[in-house]
């Protein structure tokens, strides 16, 4: 499940990147300029508006994943957060709330604390990269808001997450 999600993101990012090749190397945020690319007929003629919530979710990636009962950032997570920090520096007026989530295989209150740890791990990484502390809030939902329903490791892995939400 998680792989599917990631590859979907990758495909979207690829389309956006291809369509923006005539532009200079502004990472992946310029999808909306590619209105007439003939090689991608299934694409809507307009993509996310640069700097929008949708732009962030589609072209940057709004979430990172954690191991069971872990709150350290994986290499995949820091790669995503590097992109998030770059985007946030480009759009300096945006404020964010980092949500920390846990899977259902822990007790409720422990998971609230664990979600708070995860949200802070994300926050600390972003602010270390220069995102102003005043722009970042955190909230923990523990196991209260799973992203995916299911009773297996694939589902739980997607629920152990930190999600950066554009306010």
């Amino acid at each position: 499940m998680r792989m599917k999600y990631l590859s979907l993101c990758a495909a979207l990012a690829l389309v956006a990147a291809c369509s923006s090749t005539p532009e200079k190397k502004v990472d992946v945020a310029a999808a909306s300029t590619a209105t007439t690319t003939p090689t991608a007929p299934v694409q809507k003629p307009t993509g996310p508006v640069p700097g929008s919530k949708e732009d962030f979710v589609v072209n940057v990636g709004d979430r990172v994943f954690f191991g069971y009962d872990k709150f350290d950032l994986t290499p995949e997570a820091t790669a995503t957060l590097d992109k998030q920090a770059a985007w946030l520096k480009k759009y300096g007026s945006v404020t964010i709330t980092v949500e920390g989530h846990a899977d259902e295989r822990g007790t409720r209150e422990y998971n609230l604390a664990l979600g708070e740890r995860r949200a802070n791990a994300v926050k600390n990484y972003l602010t270390a990269l220069g995102v102003d502390l005043a722009r970042v809030q955190v909230i923990s939902y523990g196991k209260e808001r799973p992203a995916v329903l299911g009773s297996n490791e694939a589902a739980w892995a997607q629920n152990r997450r930190g999600v950066t939400v554009i306010n």
């Binding site: 709150f71 209150e109 609230l112 604390a113 708070e116 740890r117 949200a119 802070n120 791990a121 600390n124």
Partner: peptide, 8 residues
């Protein structure tokens, strides 16, 4: 409990 900066 109070959770603050990742510590509870």
């Amino acid at each position: 409990s109070l959770a603050q900066n990742g510590n509870t």
